[in-house]
Amino acid sequence: MKKIVAIANNTFKEAVRNRVLYVILMFALILIIFSGALGELTIASKFKIIKDLGFMAINLFGVAIAVFVGVSLVYNELEKRTIYTIVSKPIGRWQFLLGKYFGLLLTVGVNVVIMTLFFLATLHFYATQADGDHNLFYLLATSIGKAFVNLFAWSAFTPTQNVMVVIAITFLELAIITAFAILFSSFSTPTLSMFFTVLTFVAGRLNEDIVRFADQIVKNALEAAEAAGMKVHYPLSYYLAMGAAHVVPNLGAFHRTVEQAIYEPSVNIWWIGTVAYGILYTAGILGLAILIFSRRNFK
């Protein structure tokens, strides 16, 4: 365990030196802060727009961080031959990979926390502003204070109730993407890894559409068989689509929690199933990555 923590710690320190990380973070923060300006353009649902934009920014930029930072982590060790100094020590390859994963996850987590703080502060800023006439200093001070309290007391304030649940669920989604980044990074080049990870993210987000696509294939086959008066045979593309739908992560499951948090803020979100799914899936991907990495020839 200590070895994993040490590698994770080292990975985190390495990741925070990556300038790409700060560029992405800056973009995210600017977007979150100015979500209020976008909210001013609407004639209704200002808070919904701020929330949607905030959730989207945290999720999308979280994915960007996981992808851009994650894909080169293992590759760099191999490229710079620093892996030899590590594997020559009594450290298992699985420990190395898990250390890398948790280090990257910590990096993503810290960034998510920073983005969340800004997001919560933005929400509190506009909520307090709507409450009555307050000066700018008061608005800033209370919104930042409330944002910090919110980080620990999730349902402390009405306008941000369930926001932290969504962030936790988003983090879980990012944990899966991070695991994929590590998986692809363990056997491929950074460019290809980035490509694969982004495609996995897209496919994961469209998972439910793949199922609908499979259903459509069956429907077409049934119609064709009925018209010809023949027995129906499920086409191969159906099995392929269903197979893909079962293998590709179902990121839509996380998305539904976000929807619930926006429209039913007073209802306690049922998210144990989603958490269990996220943890199991991540563990599975990491297992696969370890399996590949432990058989890899470093020459």
Binding site: L38, T42, S45, K48, L53, F55, M56, N59, V258, E259
Partner: peptide, 12 residues
């Protein structure tokens, strides 16, 4: 999957 955000954009 960023349906809400897309809806917001189209709403504006």
């Amino acid at each position: 999957g960023y349906d809400q955000f897309a809806a917001d954009f189209l709403w504006l």
